[in-house]
Write a protein that binds this DNA or RNA. Structure first.
Lengths: 154, 154
DNA sequence: CCCGAAATATAGCCTTGGCTTTATTCTGGT
DNA sequence: ACCAGAATAAAGCCAAGGCTATATTTCGGG
């Protein structure tokens, strides 16, 4: 009833599944990426709000993200803990040096993902929406591949 | 200090940000996708294990996903609650009709995402790894675009 | 046939990221 | 100059998804 006892077919051929540790690594990587996704969304949004409004208020962040203000505040506190942002009570949120660097990287990645999706035929609005979830899982290697692909056909 | 008081530039042009409700929707969609991602990973893996081993044991699921067995068991219980799987104590896990349908959809989507990544120049192993996180955020519209793109270019 | 090892299950804990409710602080308009 | 209403913060709840530690059940080899 186990693989071992049911015949030779699946012994080391393993025609379907990657090796166990490899697969576990992939899932683990995806989990880690997910953990940082929220931070990335926040820093990107804070940078955008500063660029446009000259300030980033918790209530605006909350509205843009579609969450309650307390939720936004809690996440902002996490940003502070992680050294990505600073905020004094009733004074708005500011990115640290590190936060700004991250924001710029996230923004560039987002644009590249959107452009790639459009290049393969995804409508602009759908590309924007899907990119919001996809971007956090695109590795640097893939990102560079996207860049090359766009250059050789744009 | 507010957008209202700082000049005309950003009033309704809003050159950078999408409208607030639109953006909130996007983030909300990404959050929902994330919530179902784990279920999708489990049903896909359970289907694979059945196809290869003839059974899906919690311990194998746990090892493949790189989590502890109790964690896997808890998630399996959630699958049961959601009507995607059944399991009797000490007897392995089985997908329901609905679970099998989902598994097939997830598997097809995974393959398509990997193929697209490879088509734009991402190395096979990186494509596999990135797809693990990306796939859960690719909408049907994008998926169809991927299909068309792959068809028209061999 | 039975007993120890492996698999499974249960219980309890932690963090994250949602939420609502309540209290506090700012601030603009009269 | 004040005060109502908006923005902010604080506190406490919940579910999800990790974990470890502790039973319990199965099952294969001697």
């Amino acid at each position: 009833m186990k693989a071992d006892t049911m015949g030779a077919v699946t012994r080391q051929a393993d025609p379907e599944l990657p090796s166990e540790p490899t697969q576990a690594e992939r899932f683990g990587k995806a989990r880690v990426a997910q953990a940082t996704a929220l931070l990335e969304d926040y820093v990107e949004l804070i940078a955008d709000l500063h660029a446009i409004n000259g300030e980033a208020r918790p209530i605006d962040i909350a509205r843009r993200l579609g969450v309650s203000h307390p939720t936004a505040v809690k996440s902002i506190n996490r940003l502070k803990r992680e050294g990505l942002a600073t905020a004094k009570p009733y004074r708005g949120v500011f990115l640290t040096e590190e936060g700004q660097v991250l924001a710029e990287r996230v923004r560039a990645r987002h644009r590249l993902v959107v452009r790639l999706l459009e290049a393969v035929g995804v409508p602009a609005d759908v590309a924007e929406a899907d990119a919001e979830g996809i971007e956090h899982h695109v590795s640097d290697v893939s990102l560079r591949a996207f860049g090359r692909f766009l250059k050789t056909r744009g």
